[in-house]
Simulated scan of single mutants.
Amino acid sequence: MSPDHVLVPLDGSPLAAEALAHALATFDCPVTVLNVVTPLDAGMTEGGVLEPDGEREREAAERAERLVADARERAAAANRPVETAVETGDPAETILGYVADHDVDHVVMGGHGGERGSIARRLLGTVASAVVGEAPVTVTVVR
């Protein structure tokens, strides 16, 4: 059964870009790109070491807007419109919440990247693992 609404969480990684390309090429339905800004006071962000301030929060918001703008441009180049959203929170929880609140019936996301054992691989892998394990919908992980 083909999905009616696909969600692509986009974090700026190459695998997330591949996930967007896969979703646009594979599914003929609305696609939403979601960027989750992790609060600077979250434990695994730089906020765990640095105090949050307005400048870092502004930079994080600007980066998120650049990511979704780039996704809109890539989708337009493929002659496909996309909806975009930027939300703040724990990445896995926010993705799962978005699925529940917006009638998403398929998630396409990048798997973990980086060298085996690197912190980036463990963090990205943790998000993908949580979404795969908890989502009430089909999840496609692009690797």
Score class of each variant (00 low, 15 high):
M1D: 06
P3T: 06
D4V: 05
H5C: 03
V6P: 03
L7K: 12
V8T: 10
V8W: 07
L10Q: 09
L10N: 04
G12R: 08
G12L: 05
S13P: 04
A16E: 03
A17I: 02
A17T: 05
E18P: 01
E18T: 11
A19H: 06
L20N: 05
L20G: 05
L20W: 04
A23L: 05
A25C: 03
F27D: 14
D28A: 14
C29T: 15
P30F: 02
L34S: 10
N35G: 15
V36D: 01
T38K: 15
D41I: 02
M44H: 13
M44D: 09
L50P: 00
P52I: 11
D53G: 08
G54K: 04
G54P: 03
E55H: 12
E57I: 15
R58C: 01
E59N: 08
R63P: 00
E65T: 12
E65F: 05
E65S: 13
A69K: 06
A69R: 07
D70C: 01
E73I: 03
A77L: 10
A77I: 00
R80P: 11
E83W: 05
T84C: 09
T84I: 12
A85I: 09
V86W: 11
T88S: 15
A92L: 02
E93S: 12
E93C: 02
I95K: 11
G97M: 01
Y98T: 04
D101L: 14
H102V: 13
V108K: 10
G114Q: 07
G114I: 06
E115L: 12
R116V: 15
R121F: 00
R122E: 09
L124C: 04
L124F: 12
A130D: 10
G133T: 07
E134A: 11
P136M: 02
P136G: 15
T140L: 06
V141L: 10
V141K: 08
R143W: 03
